[in-house]
Write a protein that binds this DNA or RNA. Structure first.
Lengths: 230, 230
DNA sequence: CCCACTTTGTGCGTGCTTTCACAAGCACGT
DNA sequence: ACGTGCTTGTGAAAGCACGCACAAAGTGGG
């Protein structure tokens, strides 16, 4: 554990920064589509909805890719962020649970920024298995392990009902998948080394309700100015 | 400061805590369904996937609802958290954009924990308008203002393509909606006092990719133990 | 060649979050 | 009535994250 010869590499990008990089990336791509070649931190921050100092600090974690007095070259920055996020390689994704949500995900054109390829759609319902969704045949959940192996799936997406989610997660893990995106409203139990992210509609609604109630409560003159406007 | 007559009230619950309350709530409801009457912070924290000290501190912001040596009474705690989150009143929700995602949301049974009522589904596509989804008629987007007014909509959900999202958001705001849940991959621009939350599939995938790449990079023996296992 | 102007990169203070560790409190058995 | 054992609630410490404000660095005009 001594050598790190060709690597003045950045050690550990803060989690909060990582979460914002995709937002910057999207804003940059919009700028590129509009033909913009160069952008200042101020302008990009505006487009991404963040403070410009924060943006500069975030970018500084990747390296010094700006030019003082000028700004950032859009194309170059897109490349650097993409590389940092690992989007220069292809990620193979399997989606389990082809209900409305699964279909919505399967059809999510281009899958945001490219880099993600849907390798397989799986479901347990015989009614759904065999159908074609987004130009892919829905396969039976029993072939999960085989699909992961043959298609080199590295990211598993769970869009099943809550009751089936843990089982699917365990099978993913068992099959060697170490990145899971979970849409089911349950806390998944996975071993260390497996990365689970959760997307949960009802939690978001409840947070909104909390703030709405708070606004309604204190309504009189104590209006609250600084609301999160992500 | 001697008096605190009718208000041992909590002032300002930390945002991080608010974001976790729905998770606790769900875990508690699962316990209740299983017939559990009482739970310790340790056990509940386990079910919610957090540290028990964190859980206790979170709950302490609501008040002292536990009994030392025993734990928390499940039913009572459910009530307290629900009240704090504003789930004891009904929230009227309108969903705009009835594609696959919109349909998935509309069918999201019970809408997590009750408290949320889908008041209307709206879309711009004449092909979709008039159809019945989840026992509701899809109405044309032009009636947004009327629907908000007559149905008392307080939360707007945007499930449209990126291009239409800002327009819809502005109309919501104009109509008086101050809570918005946005599924479209764009940064919404709204005035102060409007609360926007964002749910973004491709951002989550990119974050997963980042961590996966990082694991692959440093793979040798420098394995990283402390991964987020939300 | 130098000066005025612009914009990046970052040191620093501030406030929020998490975690530890323990005193205070309650139940129950004797 | 009292001691034992368990669990809560919280002070204090450490770690992150944010945003200000400014020095450093580059551009372009005269």
């Amino acid at each position: 554990m001594t050598t790190r010869p060709p690597r003045p590499r950045e050690r550990g990008i803060p989690e909060a920064t990582v979460a914002r990089l995709p937002v910057y990336l999207r804003a940059l791509q919009a700028l590129q589509d509009r033909g913009t070649a160069t952008v200042s931190s101020e302008a990009l921050a505006g487009a991404a909805g963040v403070n410009s100092a924060k943006l500069r600090k975030d970018l500084s974690h990747l390296g010094s890719y700006g030019t003082r007095g000028v700004g950032y070259e859009v194309e170059y920055l897109i490349y650097q962020i993409s590389r940092e996020l690992g989007l220069t390689q292809d990620w193979s994704v399997a989606i389990v649970g082809i209900g409305n949500l699964g279909r919505a995900l399967a059809n999510y054109g281009g899958f945001g920024t490219r880099g993600f390829r849907i390798a397989a759609l799986l479901d347990a319902d015989p009614e759904v298995v065999g159908r074609s969704v987004a130009s892919l045949d829905v396969r039976h959940i029993d072939s999960l392990e085989e699909v992961v192996r043959t298609k080199g799936v590295s990211i598993g997406v769970i869009a099943t009902p809550a009751g089936s989610a843990q089982g699917v997660a365990s099978r993913f893990v068992e099959a060697g998948v170490t990145s899971i995106l979970n849409f089911a409203p349950v806390v998944l139990n996975v071993p260390d080394g497996v990365d689970v992210r959760k997307v949960d509609l009802s939690i978001e609604l409840q947070i909104l309700a909390f703030h709405a109630q708070r606004r309604a409560d204190g309504d009189g003159q104590t209006h609250r100015s600084g609301l999160e406007v992500t």
